[in-house]
Design a protein around this nucleic acid. Structure first.
Lengths: 176, 176
DNA sequence: ATTACAAATTGCCATATGGTAACTTAAGGA
DNA sequence: TCCTTAAGTTACCATATGGCAATTTGTAAT
């Protein structure tokens, strides 16, 4: 992408510095923004029928993130997105995203890529939950995202991997 | 949608009658078509590293289907789509889909809906694999898609649910 | 009717994971 | 520093599921 285009696109983003614990997307509310995460870690989770939190995804900087369904369909989100650390973000509004989609081909291309990556992520995760043992899933997480394993509380990682915190604690011991 | 538009869109679809066992999308090949399934059942599966088939999805008529990644990104498919019964399909080429996207707003809207439904399916499935027992997943399948439970061989359903055929056979016995 | 083959079932035991309760460790506030 | 609380660990046992092997059932071809 040319510098001109990059600069143009950058003008639509607004810098935000937020503290640990902030919810940047809330269950039940329609998400108005997409984000670029410059620093920090974000956890995405839903609350199931029994009231348990299920962590469905982590984002660690640098990365783009939004709630695909809530943002692009402008409907209430089913998930919460919580900052696990203090973070610096750059946000763009739905209106501006629409404007950029219509007027900047490179931005449209970027949107397509986001969508594809999102889809690939879900498919990989589905297959992992399907065929891998909890230990394999944990080992893979260490390989691909060591920063998450290091910085995120064990019970959240356990929930993300689909096991209890007790099991994950045992898996940790075995791996060492 | 108006009848005029519907008729116009229909002209881009070509009827195909195919027999049980036919692969309509092949692993390794770039998918050139999207389909409307008028009658029949389709199974989507991948082959994992150990050579096992993992069934990732069923489609039963009437439904639209394509391989999102292979079709829209025009890259080799990672999955196979197999007819489990004789079937009548209506197919539309990638070129024609692009044409319709550019020229028929209703079609664009339909594309967006497909994408969203696809996404919702993957998320639901992820959560099901995450939190439900095999028995719950099977019960839900019976509720939502009894025709699949009736017509599809047990070992394929087992693979879809993420359990062995032995376990599913036992689950079946308990439920009765 | 007979054979052949795939699909499905079931007894048996192994393994992975769940869940409680007790305990230890770590971290932040008064 | 002490106190309080959350996080993490671990012993123990329960439950869910895996997987082999033997058997039965169903189905299609001859």
């Amino acid at each position: 992408m040319s510098d001109d285009k990059a600069d143009l696109i950058a003008t639509f983003f607004k810098e935000e510095t937020l503290t640990k614990g902030t919810l940047i997307i809330n269950e039940g509310k329609t998400s108005k923004k997409s984000f670029f995460l410059e620093s920090g870690i974000v956890r995405c989770y839903i609350i199931d029928l029994e009231g348990n939190e299920i962590t469905t995804r982590f984002f660690s900087a640098p990365d783009f993130l939004n709630d695909f369904l809530s943002f692009f369909e402008q409907q209430p989100s089913e998930e919460n997105y919580e900052l696990l650390t203090d973070a610096k973000l750059h946000s763009i509004s739905f209106t501006d995203v629409q404007y950029c989609f219509h007027n900047i081909p490179e931005f449209r291309e970027w949107g397509r890529m986001m969508l594809t990556l999102n889809h690939v992520f879900l498919k990989k995760r589905m297959i992992a939950l399907h065929k891998e043992t909890a230990q394999e899933r944990y080992s893979n997480l260490i390989k691909t995202h060591p920063e998450i394993v290091q910085q995120v509380p064990l019970h959240m990682i356990a929930s993300y991997l689909g096991v209890t915190k007790y099991s994950l604690s045992r898996i940790r011991k075995e791996i060492k």
